[in-house]
Design a protein around this nucleic acid. Structure first.
Lengths: 153, 153
DNA sequence: GATGATATTGCAAGTCATTTGCAACAAGCA
DNA sequence: TGCTTGTTGCAAATGACTTGCAATATCATC
C-alpha cells in the first residue's frame, strides 16, 4: 500500500557542499547532529533531537541543535513543521517529496499522505482567487486506529 | 456522503446564556470585547483586538482580552487559528461554517474558501488509514493578486 | 437597597519554546 | 604555525501567552 515506486532521491545538496558554498565551516557538532537527525526518522522536535545527540556526543548544547536545525532548513535538508501542539518538529527533506500530515491527538503519532487530487483542487481554488501559491499545509487531526481501540476500553 | 467532521459547536449560543449556564458573570469588559470582536471582521490577533478595545474603553488589560477570547472559544463563539506567523488569530465562529484559508505572505491578507471535494477527499484519505477525523486545517500560503502586481514594480 | 460569597480584573511576574550576546574555542586558508 | 573569522556553550533575553494575587465588581439573597 505504501510502496513508493519512484525511488526517493535524497535532497540534492549535501551539507558540506552547502557549507563551503556559503563560506561556513564543518564541525563535529554539525556532523553529529545531521547524522542523528537523518537516522532518527521523521518529525523530531528540537528537544527530542537534542536528547539523542547528547547521549551520543556529550556536551552539545540546545542552542547548537537549534542553530543547526535552522541551518539544515536553509540548506534544504530539513523542513520545519509547526503543528498545533505548540512546538516545531523537523523532518528530513528529501527532494520534491511533498506530503501532508495525519496527526493523532491522543498519542501524537504523525503519519503522512500524498494526494494529487487534493493538490490539484487547491491550485484551482487559488487560481480562482488570483492567488499565487507558494506553499501549503494540510493537517488532519483526530484519532489513529490504535487510539480508537484504546478509547473503547 | 455526509461530512462528519466535527468542528465546533454551532455558535447559536449567546454569551450571556453561556455565562449564566456556567455560573459565570457578565461584565462590562466582556461586553465591550465581544462587541468589538464581532464588529471587527475576522482573523484578529489578541493584540489587534486589545488595541481596538483600549481605544473604545480605556483600561482593559491584555490579560482580560486573552481570558475573554479563551472564554469565547469555549463558548463556541470564537475560533482560534494558529497560522505560521507565530501568533494566534481569532475569528468569529458562525455556526457550522467551516472554511480554510488563503494567506498572503506579503501583506498578511487572509481570505477564506470552502471546498467540499477537498473535504471529501480528506475523509477518504483518513478512512484508508483507519483514522477518525476530528478536525482539520488547510492553509495555502502565497501571494494575493494585489501583491503579485506590486512584486513586478 | 444592603450584604456577602465568589467571580473577575489589572498588574506584574511567570511560562515555555526558541533566540541571541558574548567570550572562549576551533576550522581552515596562507 | 599563525591568524582571521566562523562556531560553540552558557546564560540571559525574547515574545506570545498565562497566572498569582490583592483589589474590585457582580448578583443571588436577605
Amino acid at each position: 500500500m505504501t510502496c513508493n515506486i519512484i525511488m526517493q532521491k535524497p535532497a540534492n545538496i549535501n551539507l558540506s557542499e552547502y557549507l563551503s558554498a556559503k563560506g561556513l565551516r564543518s564541525t563535529s557538532q554539525r556532523d553529529a547532529i545531521l547524522k542523528l537527525f537523518m537516522a532518527a526518522g521523521r518529525h523530531l522536535s528540537a528537544e527530542e533531537l537534542h536528547e539523542r545527540v547528547r547521549k551520543a556526543h556529550t556536551g552539545i548544547s540546545y542552542a547548537t541543535v537549534y542553530r543547526t536545525l535552522k541551518l539544515l532548513s536553509e540548506a534544504g535538508l530539513a523542513k520545519e513543521n509547526r503543528f498545533d501542539d505548540g512546538f516545531t518538529r523537523y523532518e528530513y527533506n528529501s527532494a520534491d517529496d511533498h506530503h501532508d500530515h495525519l496527526i493523532c491527538t491522543r498519542c501524537g503519532e504523525i503519519s503522512e499522505f500524498e494526494n494529487d487530487k487534493i493538490e490539484a483542487l487547491q491550485l484551482d481554488v487559488a487560481k480562482k482567487k488570483g492567488f499565487k501559491v507558494r506553499n501549503h499545509k494540510l493537517e488532519i487531526y483526530g484519532l489513529c486506529s490504535k487510539c480508537q481501540r484504546k478509547q473503547g476500553e
